[in-house]
Design a protein around this nucleic acid. Structure first.
Lengths: 115, 115
DNA sequence: AGTGTATGTATTGGTGGCCAACATATGCGG
DNA sequence: CCGCATATGTTGGCCACCAATACATACACT
């Protein structure tokens, strides 16, 4: 998978992996990698600014977890607005793949029956 | 569809619309738009440099058509290398959608049955 | 006690690909 | 002869993401 592959779809990925429950940055990277079967390897320089942005937009909320004997970690959680946006991202993804897919793999042409 | 949507997939689109036969620039834009159901509207500033690049790479060949009573137009045609690359782009597209899709819409989890 | 490794958060600079805008030319209908 | 649709092309700019870097701490090992 080329480096730049997630371009334009990063927000959806982040929101999606946070849907089941809160995660911190490192765990988000691991979750994306796992759920993609190892195909997507996000970098910290990619997600931290993105998480920050999503929080500023009100799609995520964060809180520091500092259990004793643990490094401090910041857990991100979906807000209601985030959930709504995630639904939108999923719809956009469907449209996007349909559009590109239709050009890349046009179904069997049936001349004369096109609508 | 956001403006930047085709980023990273442009080459595949161009090769795909040229698969059935040669087309000139303007017709390529129209073909992509038609096959995508109107969702993808490429700009001349997008495709002309791209077509040039693909020709330099040997994936396309071009020839000027100048029928009498017609504006001059440059028809682009797939080369064998272009056809091979198109196959690769299709495979890459499948991988790409599988990866993003798996993160965005993880199938019903079946704990304990994961492979 | 000291060293290394894995975990964890964060910032900075750079790049490349696409778009918006612009420039130009011509066939054709009114 | 004027405007519109068709047609090919160039230039500048933006911005999202990556690579590299920096730093801090828990824990295992010696």
């Amino acid at each position: 998978m080329k480096a730049d592959a997630v371009r334009g779809h990063l927000d959806g990925l982040l929101l999606a992996v946070l849907e089941p429950g809160p995660l911190h940055g490192y765990a988000i990277i691991a979750a994306v990698q796992r759920r993609s079967g190892g195909a997507l390897e996000l970098r910290t320089g990619t997600i931290y600014p993105a998480l920050n942005r999503l929080e500023r937009l009100g799609l995520l909320s964060s809180s520091w977890e500092s259990a004793a004997g643990e490094r401090r970690r910041r857990a991100y959680e979906l807000t209601d607005a985030g959930r709504a946006t995630l639904a939108g991202e999923r719809a956009a993804w469907t449209e996007f793949t349909a559009a590109i897919g239709a050009v890349l793999n046009p179904g069997p042409q049936r001349p004369g029956l096109a609508t």
